[in-house]
Design a protein around this nucleic acid. Structure first.
Length: 269
DNA sequence: TACTCATGAGCAA
DNA sequence: TGCTCCTGAGTAG
């Protein structure tokens, strides 16, 4: 489920399993062979996420940038399973494989997996909007988000999907954040108040932290502590034609920038 | 078994 | 706006 919370979980996992260790890196599928050859054997200084992008910072100023896109997935192996997996045929098209004696991560189907230098990593980060999952003690990131939305005439439903406005939010959180805020997804950015935007940001932080903790995009407060089935987790996402969980009004669906948008026309005016 | 759809995003027209 | 990249889960028949 590659929205931002998944990527932060992966960064945490890389830090736990691999930080400070030399990584063996290869590309069973072959499409990352050149990158793997450059990075193989280097020590992982740290892993971090910005929005939906994962950065592996290696010794010597090299970075591996990974973006899962819509299909990308990780598969992890621990302990004895590592040696066994190395003997077996890789499962699926494994673009990149990262491992030590004790842990292994297989990457399949990413949109991006490349080795870059520090300047390129900085350039990519500069293009990304603030990430609700990264610390913001000064409030500067929140201010960036508010300013960026309020100077736009684009609908808020489109702005929340724009990674230069807010990074890490995808189609599920977009729909759910707007529902929880009671905001019409077609309302233009410059018509939202600072208070509304603060509230959306604060809610994004909370919901995405739940996502990091649980691995699931649970957006119904009463279910945060439980383990709801996929169809129960959200208010409006993928619930078109069904009654709104709050008011009973039929949940609507429309395409916004080629992505399916779900909302309740009664609760979100 | 075959087909559709998906949590994303870059690019050409 | 539509096409493309690419993988796999879910569903129809």
């Amino acid at each position: 489920m590659p929205e931002g919370h998944t990527v932060h979980r992966t960064a945490n996992q890389f830090n736990e399993q691999f930080a400070g260790k030399a990584l063996t890196i290869d590309s069973p599928q072959g499409r990352f062979s050149a990158g793997a050859a450059m990075a193989n054997g280097l020590i992982l200084n740290r892993a971090f996420a910005v929005g939906k992008q994962l950065f592996l910072e290696l010794q010597g100023g090299l970075f591996i940038r990974i973006h899962l896109g819509i299909y990308g997935k990780w598969r992890w192996y621990q302990g004895k399973a590592v040696a066994k997996a190395l003997q077996d045929e890789p499962v699926g098209q494994v673009r990149a494989r990262f491992y030590t004696d004790t842990a292994m991560a297989d990457l399949r189907g990413p949109t991006v997996c490349e080795v870059i230098v520090a300047e390129e990593a900085d350039r990519v980060r500069d293009q990304l909007g603030p990430d609700p999952l990264n610390d913001d003690p000064s409030g500067l990131e929140l201010a960036r988000f508010i300013a960026r939305v309020q100077r736009s005439k684009q609908p808020i439903g489109a702005l929340l999907m724009d990674q230069a406005v807010i990074s890490g939010v995808g189609n599920v959180y977009r729909a759910e954040l707007l529902f929880r805020a009671g905001i019409d997804p077609y309302l233009e950015g410059n018509r939202l108040t600072e208070e509304q935007l603060r509230s959306i940001w604060k809610d994004a932080v909370a919901l995405m932290q739940v996502g990091v903790a649980t691995g699931f995009m649970i957006t119904r407060d009463d279910l945060f502590e439980s383990d709801p089935s996929k169809s129960e987790r959200n208010f409006v996402y993928k619930r078109e034609g069904q009654p709104c969980r709050i008011c009973g009004h039929e949940v609507s669906i429309a395409l916004m920038q080629a992505r399916k948008l779900y909302w309740c026309g009664n609760c979100q005016r």
